[in-house]
């Protein structure tokens, strides 16, 4: 059995929306280098619609695929829908992730929320901070296994 689904491999090999948006309306960065994943998401928002999203990611295959899929899922959507995007939706759209890689999808969800928070802050829009709080899920402890 392969480690990743075809969908994950497709998004990993051919990531959508890689890059930077100059003059983005919101930028979110989560994760940390020590844990081996950093995700940065840029959003262009017009009339409350996410008209463009781009990402830069340092991380494993599923981190890159999750970023790619997450940007795909929110482009063209209203901000409220992007805000409601869950890591579960990202995982489902990718046809699943291995259990020890689920945190990559959580990072994608969080990166989008951070970018939206940045958008609200920059534009002086009042918001409910509750759903925007980052949950600390950097590295999940797993078994070590060397060869």
């Amino acid at each position: 059995m392969a480690l990743y689904s075809e969908k994950v491999m497709d998004h990993f090999r051919h990531p959508r929306n890689v890059g930077v948006i100059e003059n983005a309306d919101g930028v979110g960065e989560v994760g940390n280098a020590k844990c081996g994943d950093i995700m940065k998401i840029y959003l262009k928002i017009e009339n409350d619609i996410i008209v463009d999203a781009k990402f830069e990611t340092f991380g494993c295959g599923s981190a890159i695929a999750s970023s790619s899929m997450a940007t795909e899922l929110i482009i063209g959507k209203p901000v409220s829908e992007a805000l409601a995007l869950t890591n579960k939706a990202v995982v489902e759209a990718l046809d699943g992730l291995p259990a020890h890689k689920l945190h990559c999808s959580v990072l994608a969800e969080e990166a989008i929320k951070q970018a939206l928070k940045d958008y609200y802050d920059r534009h002086g829009i009042a918001y409910d901070p509750k759903p925007l709080e980052p949950c600390d899920t950097c590295c999940l402890p797993e078994q070590e296994h060397d060869r």
Binding site: G36, C60, H100, C139, P141, E142, Q143, E144, H145, D146
Partner: peptide, 15 residues
């Protein structure tokens, strides 16, 4: 092969 934590499912990269 790699000593990255991600390749082994470990918490830390190679000891």
């Amino acid at each position: 092969s790699s000593g990255s934590a991600c390749t082994s499912g470990a918490l830390d990269p190679s000891h």
